[in-house]
């Protein structure tokens, strides 16, 4: 799986493409009401085809987590539409959201591996929770959950442990496994590797690549272009609540069009390839500020 390059996979968006797993159209999210409110997202349009991995990159406050939360119904959209698995969910109330979520089409992996698992529940209990919510019998749920522990390269011995007894990397992998147990069509990952050290980061990234190969659609949110670059088919760049650039991963990295994207690529620390020098970055910053 390490050799497959992003381009080798069907982008899926062109001619005769199947219906997207996720289609966001003209999305706007506002926090606060009236004049004191501010919009966290403005006119964001993005779609994710079946099997596609879209990387969403943006810095703190760019609205990337808001995008994820809006797609999951955790925050309300002020305008625009969101379609999940072909279903228009924009106007959904709590009950219909719950019914939709219970089908397990979309799952979410949180940034903070320390707090994304209930400290009082064993790994097994956390892992099977989405299945129990669906109404699956406990014994069957446990059987099914074991298989997914395998997928994230964790041994079944961990099932009886509490999150406090696992390392950060192990916990994040459990969180990924929990997101997978309902066999979702789309997994949204919010900074899944940012809190991990490099060995664990590599491990989780490898798991994501395997998922992608298995045909699960992924939305990979991160502030780090490096970790997205090797995983995503397409990259979407969020800057101050707006989607400034969307394109094939290699294109965005090698030929960034927007000033911010150019600064982003030019700022990424690299070993050999000098992406930009200080004066170039200075000039880009000035253009962005002005």
């Amino acid at each position: 799986m390490t050799t497959a390059s992003p381009e080798a996979r069907p982008a899926g968006k062109e001619a005769g493409a199947p219906a997207p797993v996720l289609a966001v159209e003209g999305l706007e999210v506002r926090y606060g009401r009236g004049r004191r409110g501010r919009s966290a997202l403005r006119d964001v349009s993005l779609s994710v085809a079946p099997g596609e991995t879209v990387g969403v990159i943006g810095e703190t406050g760019s609205g990337k987590s808001t995008l994820a939360r809006a797609v999951l119904g955790l925050v309300r959209a002020s305008a625009g539409s969101i379609r999940v698995g072909g279903e228009e969910v924009t106007g959904y109330g709590n009950r219909r959201w719950r019914a939709l979520r219970r089908r397990g089409i979309v799952q979410y992996v949180f940034q903070d591996p320390l707090r994304s698992l209930d400290p009082d529940l064993t790994i097994e209990d956390s892992l099977i929770e989405p299945l129990l919510i669906q109404g699956v019998e406990r014994t069957e749920a446990v059987d099914r959950a074991r298989a997914f522990l395998d997928r994230v390269h964790l041994s079944a011995e961990l099932l009886g442990r509490l999150p406090g007894e696992l390392s950060g990397g192990q916990r994040q992998r459990v969180a990924v496994a929990r997101a997978l147990v309902t066999e979702p069509a789309l997994v949204i990952l919010d900074e899944p590797v940012s809190a991990l050290d490099s060995a664990n980061r590599v491990q989780v990234l490898e798991i994501l690549k395997e998922l992608r190969a298995a045909g699960t659609s992924l939305v990979f949110i991160s502030h780090d272009l490096g970790s997205i670059a090797g995983t995503a088919d397409r990259i979407a760049v969020l800057y101050r609540g707006e989607l400034v650039e969307v394109g094939a991963a290699r294109d965005v990295i090698n030929h960034p069009r927007h000033v911010y994207t150019r600064l982003l690529v030019g700022s990424a620390p690299t070993l050999h390839a000098r992406t930009a020098d200080r004066s170039e970055r200075e000039a880009l910053r000035a253009r962005l500020a002005g």
Binding site: L74, R101, Q107, Y108, F110, R115, E129, I133
Partner: peptide
């Protein structure tokens, strides 16, 4: 973890 449970319905 509570949000994760909410997202699972």
């Amino acid at each position: 973890y509570v949000e994760a449970a909410i997202v699972s319905g």
